[in-house]
């Protein structure tokens, strides 16, 4: 019977854990394949659409940085990060595959912005609050320079 339980657990592990891990690995491999195709002078489907390849380590030229109270654990911030990445003005070609980088040590959430659409601050604040956190300060960054900072008062936070 113990064997049955152990087998059941492993099945559950594969279903609950294995598939998402496989999906993320598959995604990474796709990016690598795109890189290889580029090196060999071939055009990938993504390049045809003129979407830049994923830029894991590069700073996005247009960003919004939000200082957020309570964001100290990435497992806990998963929902907020995914809600932010769904916003239409987020450039998903940065910071992995969602355009959002959460620095839990400094409590700062950075979002890469597309040049084509205007960022909607209200929807950013809403996504963070629905995610269980308290946004405190918002900065617009253009090519590494902070061009505007908004400190949020209690009224705006509670809205």
């Amino acid at each position: 019977m113990k064997n049955k339980l152990i087998i059941s657990l492993f099945v559950a592990v594969f279903i609950l854990g294995g598939l998402p891990l496989y999906a993320s690995h598959h995604k990474e491999m796709s990016h690598k394949h795109e890189g290889n195709a580029h090196a060999h002078g071939k055009m990938t489907h993504k390049e045809n659409q003129q979407v830049p390849k994923n830029q894991l380590n590069k700073e996005a030229p247009h960003q919004i940085k939000v200082r957020v109270d309570g964001i100290v654990c990435s497992f806990c911030a998963y929902g907020a990060e995914k809600n932010l990445s769904k916003l239409s003005f987020i450039d998903k070609s940065y910071y992995g595959d969602d355009g959002v980088f959460v620095d839990i040590e400094k409590g700062i959430v950075t979002m890469a912005l597309t040049a084509k659409k205007k960022a909607d601050v209200k929807s950013i604040l809403k996504a963070l609050k629905k995610g269980g956190y308290t946004p405190r300060e918002l900065s617009f960054v253009d090519h590494g320079n902070v061009i505007k900072t908004i400190k949020l008062d209690e009224k705006e936070i509670k809205k």
Partner: peptide
């Protein structure tokens, strides 16, 4: 306890 702390979030554990 730690998650999901977001609205509409759900989770499973074995």
């Amino acid at each position: 306890d730690m998650a999901p702390r977001w609205e509409g979030g759900y989770g499973f554990q074995t």
